[in-house]
Design a protein around this nucleic acid. Structure first.
Ligand SMILES: [Mn+2]
Ligand SMILES: [Mn+2]
Ligand SMILES: [Mn+2]
Ligand SMILES: [Mn+2]
Lengths: 220, 220
DNA sequence: AAAGGTATTTTGAATAGTCAAAATAAATGT
DNA sequence: ACATTTATTTTGACTATTCAAAATACCTTT
């Protein structure tokens, strides 16, 4: 049976397999789900029994086609719900991840379709995370980050990859959200620090670690 | 811990205690929750341990103040969610009960408040069921039904008490929804049948059992 | 190749919720 | 009052999910 626990496991395998090339390690999966490693092993074996993942003992997990399709559907629900909460209910973008974490398991496919239409079929959620299509296509483009992009050139923020309320709140306060255009004026590798400017406004200082979580693309 | 199972038990004790004077029987509770009676007994003892209900063995259950407040909050979520699904997402009023049955456990108090505001603080849901206030007041007025009201006088439908998709679909097809005004033209107790007319349109025949599920109030 | 360290798996036990079926209590009919 | 029916409770067992802790496998480093 596809319980919400199963949905969470599959979703996190999907998310982790975008970083980790191919196989997702038990340790990473357990950490993402906030369970002890043994629990992850047990569940993964059960999922493998159910044909939702492929388990290579001692190496890691991979989604099967069926598991991937379930995971994409959950991710689509998660991100559309976040978009609804921000765009329609005007909720703080730092709080919506937590809400969506529960709602993604309670929203039916029909409600999902209607939300999608109400929102105008958005391609990304408020954080810039791509929303899988109904058919299960997930656009996963590779972007530069503020930590790696050229200096003195103009870029636009396309995505903020860090769900933590603290980081999102900080980003919001400094206007660092998808759509914002800016340029990096200075980057000090030794100090692990960089400075950026928006067209108007005072310079903002950022650690390289933080900058690496902000994806950008060059402005035309 | 207040799991969604606990929420469901409490909500159903609340709903059943509106009919059954005071104590709710195990049989009725078990039936409402679609579990075997023994399961209800076990859960009710656990709820009593947790201070959420008072259990009088062999007689029935009653909510404590704490249990009642949890139940009212869940009911408020249920009915506001139904209202959202119908008014905003334009979903079929026959389907929303099922949806709300899951969503009521996933919606946070903050989302609830925002939904409430978005909807304009409605007093009833699409079926005419009263929505508990944020402070936990539940208006439970006594109405006449189409089975008991006077004939040849004009009434307005205020509530349809039957969540089953079949009945709701039937009611919708015949325009028997809250707000509709009509009069009973004929009532045949022996045959268990009655006929009613809306201002415009052909007469509608209804069983007394069905008519008893439609609550009305006299039009001014 | 042996020793350590790290990641993973196994094992045993716990919790929440459920059912089947047996036991018991209460209500009803004669 | 006694037997029957009905409602409730008890008992034992099962599933899903989790943790703690022990066992094992796989790497690194010497
Ligand atoms: Mn989740
Ligand atoms: Mn997001
Ligand atoms: Mn429910
Ligand atoms: Mn309703």
């Amino acid at each position: 049976m596809v319980t919400s626990t199963v949905e969470n496991y599959l979703k996190h395998v999907l998310l982790l397999s975008e970083e980790a090339d191919d196989l997702v390690s038990m340790g990473a999966l357990a950490a993402a789900l906030a369970v002890v490693p043994g629990t992850a092993t047990t569940m993964v074996k059960a999922l493998a029994d159910g044909g939702l993942v492929e388990h290579q003992p001692r190496h890691g997990v991979r989604l099967t086609d069926e598991g991937r399709s379930v995971a994409l559907n959950v991710l689509r629900k998660h991100r559309l719900v976040e978009t609804f909460l921000v765009n329609v209910l005007k909720m703080d973008w730092a709080k919506v991840h937590q809400e969506a974490e529960r709602l993604e398991h309670a929203v039916s496919d029909e409600v999902l379709d209607r939300l999608d239409a109400l929102l105008g079929h958005p391609g990304t959620d408020p954080h810039g995370d791509p929303i899988p299509s109904r058919q299960g296509k997930l656009r996963s483009q590779v972007y530069a980050t503020l930590a790696t992009c050229a200096t003195e050139r103009r870029f636009r923020i396309v995505r903020v990859t860090d769900q933590s309320p603290e980081f999102l709140q900080f980003a919001e306060q400094n206007g660092l959200q998808p759509g914002t255009s800016l340029r990096v004026t200075e980057r000090n590798l030794a100090a692990g620090l960089l400075t950026l400017r928006k067209p108007a406004g005072r310079p903002i200082a950022l650690s390289l670690a933080a900058a690496g979580k902000i994806l950008v693309e060059p402005e035309k």
